[in-house]
Simulated assay, not measured.
Amino acid sequence: MVKEHPILETRDLTVRFGGHVAVDHVSCRFDRGTLTAIVGPNGAGKTTYFNLISGQLPATGGSVFLNGEDITGMSVPNRTERGIGRAFQLTNLFPTLSVRENVRLVAQAKARMGFDLFSIAESHVELLERAEHVLAEVRLIDQADQIVSALPHGDQRKLEVAILIALGPQVLMFDEPTAGMSVDEVPVVLELIQKLKSDLDRTILLVEHKMDVIRSLADRIIVLHNGALVADGEPAEVIALPVVQEAYLGKAPEAAA
């Protein structure tokens, strides 16, 4: 029996900036239908590791595989087309367009329509319906006509989730999705991620500092420290490790809750 490829895998993935090794030979497999939290202290290499997977940074060494295919040399658009979707720590939207237009443009790109006027005219209604369905899913339908730059920060983060949904990726990558949010805004985004997690065809990677968020969402935690993978396992097991308590939580193991 042939073993199924993991949906995503990194093998000895490495990047150096001068003499500094920011990600150090990280090998990790991510299976379909799981949510993995990536944790570690500031400067541990978490976002850099994300950038290597999504293609924002070229690797110095090692490889990235998606469904068994080596995508290490591929551009960001090619990786997106193959099924990797990325939400950034800072919002990455079209600020002068409406909420609806942000999602419609993504749906249009996903449908490979380009900007042919006849294609757009023929499918305009379908694209708008798709956009509105996604906006309803993330509770932004009432803000559909609002210009994005005027949205509160929490609604901009929800719009990023909507754009990821419209892309329909196999792998969804969230880099601190609750960063800068008020206490009232956080539960809505967590509920959206939980809903995405319920689709077992999707795989989610999450960089997050809030341990309560990690506990509520993660099936698995991996820990990066000084660019190296130092722990990998179930949340309760990993959180209890001395390397996590000391390096990530900043307290001795006996003081942990």
Rank of each mutant, 00 (worst) to 15 (best):
L172H: 00
A256H: 15
L159Q: 04
P253D: 10
R32E: 13
R79K: 12
A228P: 04
L241S: 09
A121G: 12
L57E: 01
L249G: 07
I214A: 00
V39W: 04
V21E: 06
V76N: 02
I221R: 07
D201S: 15
V26Q: 02
V26T: 04
T91A: 15
L35N: 02
V2N: 13
I84A: 01
M173E: 07
G62S: 08
R215T: 14
A131Q: 12
G250I: 13
A255D: 14
I165S: 10
V23S: 03
H153R: 04
Y49M: 05
A166W: 00
P169N: 03
L105H: 03
T47S: 15
L93K: 05
F65W: 14
I71M: 09
F118C: 10
R29G: 03
A162M: 11
R112Q: 13
T14F: 04
E191F: 14
D232V: 11
L128H: 06
L13D: 07
I165T: 03
V213T: 06
V213Y: 02
Y248W: 02
D12R: 11
N78E: 15
T72P: 02
L135A: 11
D212G: 11
V238H: 00
V2C: 13
D219N: 12
S149I: 10
N51C: 03
I147F: 08
D232Q: 11
Q143C: 14
T203A: 04
F94E: 09
V76S: 01
F65K: 00
H25F: 06
A22C: 04
D70G: 08
F50K: 07
M211P: 06
Q245I: 11
G227E: 08
L241Q: 15
V138R: 03
V186A: 12
F17P: 03
L8Q: 04
F88M: 00
D155R: 00
L90P: 03
V99I: 06
L192V: 07
L97G: 03
A162Y: 08
L127K: 00
T10M: 08
Y248E: 08
T80C: 08
N42M: 10
D116C: 14
L192K: 09
S216W: 13
M173P: 05
N67S: 13
P235V: 07
L57H: 06
L105W: 07
G33I: 08
A257T: 08
A107V: 05
P242N: 09
